[in-house]
Design a protein around this nucleic acid. Structure first.
Length: 412
DNA sequence: TCTGGGGTCCTAGGACCC
DNA sequence: TCTGGGGTCCTAGGACCC
């Protein structure tokens, strides 16, 4: 038994693009980009062939084609990715029950107690790589380290198809010259702030006097110093033991900017239905409704929220709350993006309402949900909804996605 | 012809209550 | 005359992650 934890972080390489290349042999070896389905979509993932030509995540499609004219654009199909991800996570659990999915294509494994069975962490890593390649034709990068922070750092150090070990005795040497922005949790703004304090490397961050960091960043300062030192005690949290979901939301960039109030309301109704049906599927109700609007100029936006007296999850109730927020605002520009979300969630079994018309609404909702769960979302919708012309695969998979689909919520 | 979508956590200030 | 403090809930906004 080692005197430290042994954590693997596993990162599927160009996951969506690789899955598409496996599904369609004609795409293999070619520059491809996976995109969402909307009219103003960006590149979600691209194959390594495309990356070599300068294609980057987040680029508009036209931009990707400009830098790489032979780029093949594929509309993503989330069912493929979630199916594959679920199967891959099942492989992980053959090696340890302590598997935490960070996103659809990244997981941590705590194999501390598996070493006596399988040998070394490297052995486990190679066996996992071989299984994933054999079963799915996919490659991954794996980092091995004494904690999650360092394992993730390690898996990033060699791509694609990498295997990187950060042994406890090498932590200080590896971190000393490592740029701070390589650490998961230090983004652009934090990097800029730290750089202004003349802190560029993890070595410098780890040596920084804690008071200097806490005076500037508050409680986060303490954590920053630890990160610079490669300290991370956070446990690998296995399936079913995550915190319950805290909010459910949908937003959509419209194909064109709109300022027609009726059109805006129709879109809000559609978003409310998406939010409501998912909340009901999770068996949660919420009392705070958020509305988010981004204007045509892209940079100006606002969000407003309202907290109700009771918990709701019916689509028409969510819609009504969103509209009441909208009515408090005079729109300044045409609208580019609309978002609706619900928070302040609690798990709630359906109770039969007291009044006849409320009972009818509940039954209608349940009948609609049943059909939609069987045949896919938005087959049956409220009367005034626009037809949803976007494919089932057009949505990007949220980071909170779990292989069982739902985070620690009982399905009724 | 620019720039997606789904989340989490943290902070700050005001209202309100005891 | 002078004027509390802690806790909780709420809104708004920012940073970060994939």
């Amino acid at each position: 038994m080692p005197d430290h934890r042994v954590i693997l972080h596993l990162d599927m390489n160009a996951f969506f693009a690789s899955v598409e290349q496996q599904a369609n042999p004609e795409l293999r070896g070619k520059a491809i980009a996976v995109v969402g389905g909307g009219g103003r979509t960006v590149i979600t993932t691209s194959s390594y062939e495309a990356r070599a030509r300068g294609v980057k995540t987040g680029m508009a499609v036209w931009e990707g084609k400009r830098v790489c004219p032979e780029l093949i654009v594929v509309v993503g199909d989330n069912r493929k990715y979630t199916y594959t991800s679920t199967r891959i996570n099942e492989i992980f659990r053959e090696f340890t029950p302590l598997v935490e999915a960070f996103s659809v294509d990244e997981s941590w494994l705590d194999v501390t107690h598996s070493l006596s069975i399988f040998g070394s962490a490297e052995t486990i890593a190679y066996r996992i790589k071989a299984r994933i390649l054999h079963q799915f034709g996919l490659r991954c990068s794996i980092g091995i380290a004494p904690n999650k922070l360092l394992a993730k750092l390690a898996s990033d150090m060699k791509k694609p198809d990498g295997l990187t070990v950060i042994a406890p005795e090498n932590v200080a040497r590896i971190l000393e010259p490592m740029p701070i922005q390589e650490l998961c949790g230090i983004g652009k703004k934090m990097q800029r702030h730290l750089n202004m304090m003349s802190i560029y490397t993890c070595g410098e961050l780890g040596r920084c006097e804690e008071g200097r960091l806490t005076r500037k960043f508050g409680i986060v300062g303490r954590r920053l110093k630890q990160m610079g030192q490669g300290i991370d005690e956070s446990p690998v949290i296995p399936f079913g033991e995550e915190d319950a979901v805290k909010s459910v939301g949908h937003s959509r960039t419209l194909d064109r900017d709109i300022d027609d109030p009726a059109e805006i309301r129709r879109f809000l109704l559609q978003l409310s239905e998406m939010v409501g049906s998912r909340a009901r599927r999770y068996g949660v109700s919420g009392k705070t409704i958020h509305l988010y609007v981004r204007y045509a100029d892209f940079f100006s936006s606002w969000g407003k929220q309202t907290t109700l007296k009771s918990y709701i999850n019916r689509s028409d109730e969510i819609y009504r709350a969103a509209i009441s927020i909208l009515n408090t605002v005079a729109l300044e520009q045409p609208v580019r993006l609309l978002g609706v979300s619900i928070s302040g969630l609690k798990h709630q079994a359906d109770q039969l309402p007291l009044f006849e018309d409320e009972r009818k609404k509940l039954w209608a909702t349940q009948a609609m949900d049943t059909v939609n769960q069987r045949f896919g979302d938005m087959v049956v919708t409220l009367g005034s909804l626009l037809p949803d012309k976007e494919s089932a695969g057009s949505h990007v998979i949220p980071p909170s996605w779990r292989p069982d689909g739902i985070k620690n919520i009982d399905i009724i």
